[in-house]
């Protein structure tokens, strides 16, 4: 013990504690539920593309009053059935020529419409197809969005109430849904439209009225699970009212289901509107929707295929975009299904 090492105090150097503390620090900001979902959604390329397409369609449809080149309802019989003409493009199908008896004829010259430009051609009354598609998309989207909003409001309320109450009330409400669900949706829609008289309003009501059951069932099933959670018990113990628990605790936890289901409801509402207009009990002329345009176009499909192709493409692209976007949202909100 003789050769004890004597170290003076100043030969020690305090370690910088801050570096150590930082090892536990979370550098990234805390993400809320929505931010987290958005982060995952952004990584999904097809969903982002679908979202962009949808935004563009919404902008084009709701800006139709500004950007549409012609009045969609202006009838010009002398310019009827003109094919699409893109200025400066010389490809058959886009240069204003038509196939007549085996040779291509300049339909614009025949109709003395030399200076007029109809990007997507005209219909049988000489109305500009592009403008009609823009206005038609607006009507289709409006009907679908309003119907979905009503469906959402009603379905969520019904499902929440049924699941929260439980017991006899729940049982009765579920039987009611089962009865409604065992009537084919389209039959309900058709009967409602007949009673309400065809038109935009009645289509919206009919679609909303017949499609809320799926939402109500989903919400009810989830509510049954959620109401057994401890935070709900805690809230009840603290004396929160049922309404407050529904808004503060249940709805936020149901939001992902609601958003995903909404995204799947909108395309089905678009489909229903198009379907009804197509069979002739939907939107009535001179108003146009994608369904009525398809119906008009289909009559001349053999000779003027563009009159059906363009509305069909627009309708299909919107439907595809909604479905892809909804898929992406589902994966973003519920990453487990993707794994």
């Amino acid at each position: 013990m003789a050769d004890q090492i004597k170290l003076p105090a100043d030969s020690f150097e305090p370690v910088d504690k801050s570096a150590h503390l930082d090892s536990e620090k979370i550098a990234a900001p805390n993400l809320t539920f929505l931010q987290d979902a958005w982060r995952r959604l952004r990584k999904n390329k097809s969903a982002v593309i679908a979202m962009t397409i949808l935004i563009l369609f919404f902008l084009a449809a709701f800006g139709s009053a500004i950007i549409s080149p012609h009045n969609p309802n202006a009838v010009n019989p002398q310019f009827a059935n003109l094919p699409p003409k893109w200025p400066g493009v010389d490809i058959n199908g886009l240069n204003g020529t038509l196939n007549q008896a085996g040779s291509r004829v300049n339909a614009y010259a025949q109709a003395h419409a030399g200076s007029h430009v109809y990007w997507l051609g005209t219909d049988y009354l000489g109305r500009d197809l592009l403008s009609r598609i823009l206005y038609g998309t607006r009507i289709s989207l409006t009907v679908a969005v309003i119907a979905t909003a009503v469906d959402l409001l009603f379905g969520v309320t019904f499902g929440l109430f049924s699941g929260w109450q439980g017991g006899r009330i729940d049982n009765f409400m579920q039987r009611l849904i089962e009865i409604i669900m065992s009537i084919p949706q389209l039959v309900v829609v058709v009967l409602l439209i007949l009673v309400l008289k065809p038109g935009m309003m009645s289509i919206t009501i009919a679609i909303a009225f017949s499609s809320w059951t799926t939402m109500a069932r989903l919400i009810r099933a989830q509510t049954l699970e959620l109401k057994e959670q401890e935070y709900v018990l805690a809230a009840r113990t603290l004396g929160e009212s049922s309404v407050k628990i529904a808004f503060k605790h249940l709805l936020p936890n149901l939001s992902s289901i609601i958003i995903i289901q909404t995204m799947f409801t909108i395309p089905s509402a678009i489909f229903f509107e198009a379907f009804l207009s197509y069979i002739g009990i939907g939107i009535s002329s001179p108003q146009a929707s994608l369904g009525t345009l398809l119906n008009d176009g289909q009559k001349n499909f053999q000779f003027l295929p563009y009159q059906m192709w363009y509305p069909a493409i627009v309708l299909s692209v919107i439907m595809i975009a909604f479905n892809v976007f909804a898929d992406g949202l589902r994966d973003a909100f519920d990453p487990q299904t993707k794994e």
Binding site: F271, A274, F275, S316, M319
Partner: peptide, 11 residues
Amino acid sequence: SILGISIPSFV
């Protein structure tokens, strides 16, 4: 399958 769901049957 997305095409099948999205393209309306009447088209």
